[in-house]
Design a binder for these strands. Structure first.
Lengths: 317, 317
DNA sequence: TCGAAAAGTTGCCGGCTGACAACTTTTTGA
DNA sequence: TCAAAAAGTTGTCAGCCGGCAACTTTTCGA
């Protein structure tokens, strides 16, 4: 095997720095009407890899590979999927590579679900066998996942963190997940800050994104919050919910007590007109004048501002 | 064929009113960890439909069906795709139904790309043949598309509008596109307001969404805008761009001249402190006080507000 | 024919994501 | 050893999308 890095070579140069700043190099990526989900070049080469030599393998010969991507699905769902495969046969092949140590065995790159299903159904699995370096494998797997954008934020986070702790380089992970260094940094941070057991118990929560998971991990640092969450997670009222709802429930359950957002208040003038609303936070006061409720007041206020400020200075002197 | 409406029956009750208001009926949809893209029930039945009886058909026997979904892709891309199929064979079958009028012919439900490619490669196409009512067909097609979420806003809009003008009921279209009445209304509005030739010339523009297409159609109503756009669309400097960039270019080209957003201005006090910023639009004035630059001023302003308002009244009397 | 219900439209908001920019930390090379 | 470069982090923003709610138009039934 002269060439170990089919894919990683291909992405080669792009695997260097990596904010989405300057280094886009229009020629590296497909020109024109670029493919839907972007990732042009990689995607194309994946197809190349898949081409040629489809075989049918005994699922028992295939071992789990480096890193798991998605979180577990519910048994019923898997059931359904397996039944499907059993009846219709498997349409889309999986991708495997020869096991690096054990002759005659394989490691899976992607298609774990299909593999599991085939195993359960006791049938051979259609597979493409390729010699892939570890990097290639990760790239292929990641690409497969990001093509159908069905990984939730937290799944991507776990996946990224696992990749990193398996020793893969960030540029590679960035290419696999099709994100820039900012995004990757945040994914990994999220996965590291959150307790693994809590994440698993919550599940994939497809609607919960970066911000809310981040805020969640902040809230977890409050005294007693983690315990509270763990307790809730073992109660039926929570386990029965959908993953999204479960997240929402926990998220709310450990919300800081105090009306954290001293939300917009309406200021009413003496004559009753609701001329203004204001909102305060740590750094700013935002005052909003309603031009319909109080015509011209906004102009007046603006022109009076210097005077007001001056008189403020005076009181402070 | 006793049952013509496999699918539409299935979605049956849900096809009634249809904002996302009350009628969710937790039991109608898959419980628990519900499937990724949602659409539980429908998706499941689609699989049922696909099951059994895969055959290989001569592509020439298959006619185009009711409505086209996606916009054309670039020839190169199709080229690539076709080559792929030619080399690897077609993995995923397409779905067809017997032609309602002509014995021995078929109509395609989904998989037009694959069909075209097979035709080009001169090979038989793997197909599932089902008896589908028009409604079922649309549902299946729509479902297939929304599973892989790779239709852009404007493609969905065209598709929705075409469905509607072919006489399909809104509830059906809503189910097919997995959106609520609000979303559908907006899709159709967009497709109707925008000149078809312009849309086609711009292309799918995956990054352009509801807001910008909407704003674009408003801008097109300005005198001369449409002409300008058409002219640009025939110039090389624009045709050479990616669909997204093309959209962006046109969008900017007919931007209202005047700095429409009288964007935030900084107000500086006499002593030079940048105590405040303000922004105006038609309905409101928003004043933001920086608590760091001018400590306590925010409190002062707030407490002085009644007085200021009073003196404003006075000047106006 | 008319009033109520259904269907459709519009405004708006919250949450998600990707991106840029500025900043901090680590690595690298002379 | 230290300064420059690279890598990583954090703040922030624009744009996309789904959803709710209020409003307008159409349909329907008595």
């Amino acid at each position: 095997m002269a060439r170990k890095h089919l894919l990683s070579d291909l992405v080669g140069q792009k695997l260097s720095a990596g904010n989405s700043e300057g280094n886009v190099d229009p020629d590296a990526v497909a020109p024109q009407y670029s493919p839907r989900g972007a990732i042009g070049a990689v995607s194309r080469s994946i197809e190349l890899l898949k081409s040629q030599s489809l075989t049918e393998l005994d699922p028992e010969l295939i071992d789990a590979s480096l890193v798991a991507d998605r979180l577990d699905e519910s048994p019923e769902e898997f059931e359904e999927f397996a039944r499907q495969i059993k009846e219709n046969g498997q349409q889309v092949p999986i991708l495997v590579r020869p096991h690096p140590d054990v002759e005659g065995r394989y490691q899976i790159a992607y298609g774990r679900r299909r593999l599991r299903a085939a195993k359960a159904a006791g049938i051979l699995v259609k597979a493409a066998v390729r010699s892939l370096s570890d990097d290639d494998l990760v790239l292929a797997q990641g690409q497969e996942n990001s093509a159908r954008k069905d990984l939730s934020f937290i799944e991507r986070a776990l996946y990224a963190a696992e990749l990193e702790s398996s020793g893969f380089q960030r540029p590679l992970i960035m290419a696999a997940l099709a994100i820039d260094k900012t995004g990757l940094s945040r994914l990994i941070a999220a996965a590291k800050q959150l307790p693994a057991d809590v994440i698993r118990a919550v599940g994939p929560a497809p609607k919960a994104g970066r911000d809310r998971w981040g805020e969640f991990s902040v809230r977890l640092e409050q005294k007693g919050a983690l315990e509270k969450v763990r307790e809730l997670l073992s109660s039926d009222s929570v386990t029965g919910l959908s993953s999204d709802d479960r997240f929402a429930r926990l998220f709310d359950a450990i919300a800081p007590k105090k009306q954290k957002s001293p939300k917009a208040q309406v200021w009413k003038a003496e004559d009753g007109t609701k001329a203004a609303r204001y909102k305060q936070d740590a750094k700013t006061l935002t005052l909003t004048i309603d031009k319909e409720a109080a015509p011209d007041f906004s102009d007046y206020l603006l022109s009076a501002l210097p005077e007001i400020y001056a008189s403020f200075k005076r009181t402070k002197q």
